[in-house]
Design a protein around this nucleic acid. Structure first.
Lengths: 211, 211
DNA sequence: CCCGCCATCCCCTGTTTATGGTATCCGCCC
DNA sequence: GGGCGGATACCATAAACAGGGGATGGCGGG
């Protein structure tokens, strides 16, 4: 028996969802609310295993609610419900800890199924959501890829030590080379990266994923 | 008609894939190779629309191959084939630019279907892959959340300037305070972060998302 | 074979940081 | 009102770093 909470501000949709759930006798609706402001209390009180969460709501929005829920109960499964299929909301919700994502127009057929999936550790995904996630990941990681400072292998090594917060002396010891050699490499790195201090180099290295 | 290239080092699997493709008359196998070292040449030569790519191969691995392919042809769709269902490879491949991901044990039934999906902009996903992606995203963004160094607002400001690669003098000017004051703040930051240099502080700040 | 790139090392000079101590002012809370 | 944390500021010393120079050996390509 799977305990479920619903957060959805549209009254008729909330009722439909509730009805949908009562049709499956392995699903138990514990509560349905129009806003998530008291989600912390609800979770402590009802101990749900699955939460259906709207994104757009009065009071705190669904993504904040997910964050709160996660801090209280790390194991609860959260399925986002939304009319939006825009990239940003999807990514935010998943980063906040949502387990799955359903567009409202698709859930009339597959909701009980989706709940069973998520209980099995299988995240339910509306058509197109997976694509958005992939697009989002590629975007966030592929964007800064137009940099080639032609650092030599050794220079990259030195730079990674630098980015690890090591001082020049420590590096010299770690790499078993002279302090002056380290300094020479770093001079060359500065030249190639067009920077003038350790912290600037570290900043550039970490921000542009050079290490 | 969809032009396809295959990279797969297992001979019999490669043959099976090729056979599978010839069964669908809207799919056209342009070539099948045991290693991807010359993928750049192949793409220029065959102009494929879809590439099936193994991850584990002699020579350059599938993920590097994806990266190369993407730089040559941004529009080509790449479906990864693998026996591994471990998180890291999946994430790496997708970040490198793969459009979809199939476990080898699942592809005997759905390969032509998957190719049509990917042509429609719908990424094919073996069962469980989506979950891994979500887990990966949650992990990369939710992991460093247990740090509270109790930096004051001003200290965070100073730290963010530091992480931007600014020197102390520049900061003093930018914030219209004395160089000595900047120093004092930095001393306190070092104390709270338990570090002893700019680069160490920057490293910690960027890695633990303190800024 | 020579040239260029890389890694290694050394020296020198001036600037910047790290670390310590001290001190004033302000706002907040008991 | 006294204590406390935060922001501001100054001084002094020692260490570390930036930027300039020059030098050596190895290794690969034309």
């Amino acid at each position: 028996m799977v305990g479920i909470l619903i957060y959805e501000d549209n009254d008729s949709l909330r009722d439909s969802l509730a009805n949908l759930l009562t049709l499956s006798k392995d699903l138990l609706l514990l509560g349905a609310f129009a806003r998530a402001d008291d989600i912390a209390t609800h979770i402590s009180q009802f101990r749900p295993e699955v939460i259906l969460m709207d994104i757009e709501m009065p009071g705190i929005n669904g993504i904040q609610a997910v964050r709160q829920a996660r801090t209280i109960d790390k194991k609860v499964h959260i399925i986002m419900l939304t009319v939006f299929d825009d990239n940003k909301h999807v990514l935010d919700a998943i980063c906040a800890g949502a387990s799955g994502y359903l567009l409202k127009k698709h859930l009339s057929d597959g909701l009980p199924e989706a709940i069973r999936q998520v209980m099995d550790g299988e995240p339910p995904m509306s058509r197109g959501i997976a694509r958005m996630i992939i697009a989002g990941m590629q975007q966030t990681t592929a964007a800064p890829a137009a940099n080639d400072y032609k650092l030599s292998a050794r220079e990259k090594e030195i730079l990674s030590h630098l980015a690890g917060g090591e001082g020049l002396k420590a590096m010299a010891s770690a790499l078993s080379i002279s302090l002056d050699t380290v300094r020479t490499h770093i001079k060359n790195i500065y030249e190639k990266l067009q920077v003038h201090s350790q912290s600037e180099a570290v900043s550039k290295a970490l921000n542009e994923k050079l290490v």
